[in-house]
């Protein structure tokens, strides 16, 4: 286990290095600098700006500079918001996005595992079809449609919940978390149903039944450990998806998180911000993938013994 962990980390470092380098040079070949936007700037001002941001150095020098900063955790200044550094902006946005993602994954896990296990246990009955139909809806209604629909129903028509904001009005966290969590609940429901069906047909479950164990114990203690492995391995990639989902959800609900910062940076051509967040997102996703792979490995007794 520990050997695998270190091997994977060692592999992740060159990958992240490559990502940072490729992104850096991609942005360098992008047409248009960050300062030739709306207002024309006088040549002198432009020159000063370029000097201040070290833009007149050679590409190679800038690259070495940037990489040195990166190792020390310094992602450079934001081009759009003078006086603020990219690291600072990430530090402001990250807790909000994390909180949102946490609620979403919680909703997804509770709803998804419950519905999926229920469907597997009551296979080919009403209690199987209904949850699976709900799951299909969750997969086919994208978050950028689900969010506005929830706002329309619960926010504007029923006036039960606030339509936007984060941490300002009571209950304003409910709709964003639901929007983000619902799609994953659907995937998790399907995965846990499939995994459970596979495990429930195996011999050790029959043995447990033959021993006369209570059904509840069979399901919770024996079947779920193996049946939910697909769900655990899905969680890593799901975190990547949650980040992308947070772009949409934070835009719809005007939440000041990392996702919205990223989308705004993309519109404003705030290159250092794009660069910094891309590297940061990549690192986070590589890390969570690693974590979920290890967890799945640990849950599977067969691979545990081999290690």
């Amino acid at each position: 286990m520990i050997a695998i962990f270190f091997k994977r980390i060692l592999l992740a470092i060159p990958v992240l290095f490559a990502v940072a380098s490729i992104t850096f040079f991609l942005i360098k070949i992008a047409p248009g600098g960050p300062f030739d936007a709306d207002k024309a700037v006088s040549p002198q001002v432009l020159k000063n700006l370029n000097e201040a941001y070290n833009l007149d150095a050679s590409n190679w020098e800038q690259y070495v500079d940037y990489m040195t900063g990166l190792i020390q955790g310094d992602l450079g200044p934001s081009f759009r918001f003078p006086g603020r550094s990219v690291s600072e902006m990430i530090a402001t946005g990250l807790p909000v996005t994390f909180e949102l993602a946490f609620y979403a994954i919680l909703i997804a896990l509770v709803m998804g595992v419950f519905l999926g296990v229920l469907a597997a246990l009551k296979r080919n009955t009403f209690l199987d079809f209904i949850p699976m139909a709900i799951a299909m809806i969750g997969i086919c209604v994208p978050s950028f449609l689900m969010g506005p629909l929830l706002v329309l129903i619960f926010g504007l028509n029923l006036e039960l919940l606030p339509v936007s904001g984060w941490d300002q009005l009571p209950g304003d966290k409910i709709l964003p978390s639901l929007t983000l969590g619902f799609a994953y609940a659907a995937y998790i429901a399907r995965l846990s149903r499939g995994g459970m069906l596979e495990v429930l047909n195996q011999d050790f479950i029959r043995t447990a039944r033959a021993k006369g164990l209570a059904e509840r114990i069979i399901v919770v203690k024996h079947a779920m450990q193996g049946g939910l492995i697909p769900v655990v391995s899905f969680l890593g990639p799901a975190i990547a998806g949650l980040l992308a989902g947070s772009f949409v959800v934070e835009t719809i609900f005007q939440i000041p998180g990392l996702g919205r910062f990223y989308v705004e940076a993309a519109f404003n051509r705030d290159y250092t911000m794009i660069l910094g967040t891309t590297i940061f997102f990549s690192a986070m996703i590589v890390f969570f993938n690693l974590l979920s792979d290890l967890a799945a490995l640990w849950m599977n007794p067969r691979s545990r013994d081999v290690q």
Binding site: V19, A240, F281, S282
Partner: peptide
């Protein structure tokens, strides 16, 4: 890798 981000990029 977070591909959606690369598409946006």
């Amino acid at each position: 890798l977070p591909f959606i981000i690369f598409i946006i990029l």
